[in-house]
Nucleic acid binder design. Structure first.
Lengths: 334, 334
DNA sequence: CTGAAAGCGCTTACAG
DNA sequence: CTGAAAGCGCTTACAG
């Protein structure tokens, strides 16, 4: 029942565990182990199905080949799709992923960082929230690679990969204005994170640049963790009581709720009511009519995150932090 | 830079590491350590921010408090939602999750099992595929808790948690027949797993029991990993060339493709064409008209999986395997 | 009431 | 060309 150890292999092969270790780690040549011994040991390893104990290896070497991934919620399709891409790319380079969801709770995020720390993960990929700046700074001070993605934390100097939310939001509003819209609403969340604030700023700036007066009453900030029924009621209130000819939803789940409202109040999307949703969702292409969306470049975000991680992992000296901002794409559907 | 060890704490407190260890592990009372010493040590731990190295603890105790989760694809909403629920429940009990996606590849699944094994995970939660029976049997022989979910493996004696796919599929078809439908199609996948076969069996049996002849031409088996454009072409072929008045989609992503086809060929869902989709999706409620679905009890599946894991983990003796089959729910929407 | 010491399974500097 | 031994940071049986 007990699994084999390097000692068992050494005994079977009648060599020292040092020799076995060198062979396992591909240092046989370098340590000039004879061909005959290499073959014998490899054969025994093969036949016995021996797998080195990674826990012992980690304890000794100090690295785990595990990357910790901290996100808001794995069941949100934006994150699950990113998680899948990151997993793929990490595995190809020999790294595994431990993930965990923060649910936008500062306490849970702090706890997760501590847990990952005590497990000695080699690197951290974090979609952060405000309030954990100090914890992240401590990771950096200890020399850990930390990459933020999706949301940046202005007060911490780390590497960051994300889409250009300001421009994407600006362009969405500009496209409404180009269609002749004047009363443009924004439905967003009240969570205080960079990428949501940028979407708001883009909305405001586009209005100003086009000489349209910003109206606070057309901006609905939905409380993050509330019941969907409440969200629907609030959006309905906005749609029914305000004169609106276009709306930008700042997240895909808000757009889903918004579409439910439109269905309920029987308001048609068309020439006199336009909609754009931030982040794509399968429901949008299928919807009648199809919903225009802002699409984040998931593949590129994941690729850049992994690249930065690997670069930092291989750099012994002080690492230069990088910010990589990738354009998002506005997909107009009819 | 280096993090603190138990030795550092012992030196600071002027006691042995044994004493510190007892205090950390809540055995202070049992080992009758004096109140004064306990307080002193706890204060130092608190102030220094010391976190025990879990790697060392794992090596010594043999357990990792990590559960390995092997699924088909984390970006599929069924799995990401289950993953979220399992994560939640596991965390509450002090366990962390490492996940990985198999993409329905036998080789990748085997590799993942080996990787988890060498990391000494305490338990395995697997949504399996045919071809890894031996590997799972080896885990069981080594005394590891293994819970299969979503799909069972008939040739291996393990615990299993899943929905009653046969009945759900049967009831779906029965509801079509009750509406007077005669030409009922099934769009399913060609992957050779229990839960897909059961859906097929339920379809066939319901037809037979109602005296409707089974027609092979009305069953479309889509190749698993193909491009969506090919899937759409095949479904279109079925819908255009066969006389059909109802269709059951065996997975939610097939239903999404199917709805795209209907939109394209401008076929309306209504009195003379009915649709049911297996596994819910946000797009279905929103669709015009809303799509009826078979909903799996995700919460109950996750809860039972974790319960079984904990039970097995706490049972020193030979564990009695259990199969838990939970009814799925047919939600009719109009 | 508390501590010295063995040992979990590895890696690697050192010695020969 | 190969091995003995130290040490990574813990836990715990044993001794006093």
């Amino acid at each position: 029942m007990k699994s084999l150890s390097i000692k068992d292999i050494a005994v079977k092969a009648n060599v020292s565990i040092t020799t076995v270790s060198f062979i396992i780690n591909g240092k046989a040549k370098e340590k000039s182990i004879s061909e005959a011994v290499i073959e014998k040991v490899e054969k025994i390893i093969e036949e016995s199905g021996y797998k080195p104990n990674q826990i012992a290896r980690s304890l000794r070497t100090g690295n785990s080949n595990i990357i910790g991934l901290i996100i808001e919620d794995i069941s949100n399709s934006f994150f699950s799709r990113i998680a899948r891409l990151i997993e793929d790319k990490a595995y190809k380079r020999g790294y595994k992923i431990i993930y965990s969801s923060t649910e936008n709770s500062i306490d849970k995020a702090k706890e997760l960082i501590n847990m990952f720390k005590s497990r000695k993960v080699d690197a951290y990929i974090i979609s952060p929230i405000k309030g954990i700046e100090e914890d992240i700074q401590m990771l950096l001070d200890d020399g850990n690679p930390v990459i933020l993605f999706d949301r940046n934390l202005p007060d911490v100097n780390t590497s960051y990969v994300g889409a250009d939310h300001f421009t994407a939001s600006y362009q969405s509003i500009q496209s409404f204005i180009d269609q002749g819209k004047k009363n443009i609403a924004l439905v967003t969340t009240d969570i205080n994170v960079e990428q949501i604030i940028e979407r708001y700023d883009g909305y405001k700036k586009a209005l100003e640049d086009n000489g349209i007066k910003y109206d606070d009453k057309l901006v609905l900030k939905i409380h993050f963790n509330q019941e969907e029924s409440d969200t629907i009621a609030q959006i309905k209130e906005l749609f029914v009581n305000k004169k609106i000819d276009a709306v930008l939803f700042a997240t895909n789940y808000l757009a889903i709720s918004g579409l439910k409202v439109l269905k309920k109040i029987n308001k048609k999307i068309g020439d006199d009511f336009a909609v754009i949703a931030y982040d794509d969702h399968e429901a949008f292409e299928l919807h009648t009519p199809a919903i225009s969306t802002v699409q984040q470049p998931l593949e590129e975000i994941a690729e850049n995150v992994i690249k930065l991680i690997l670069k930092q992992l291989s750099t012994k000296t002080k690492f230069e932090n990088q910010e990589i901002i990738i354009p998002a794409k506005l997909i107009i559907r009819h």
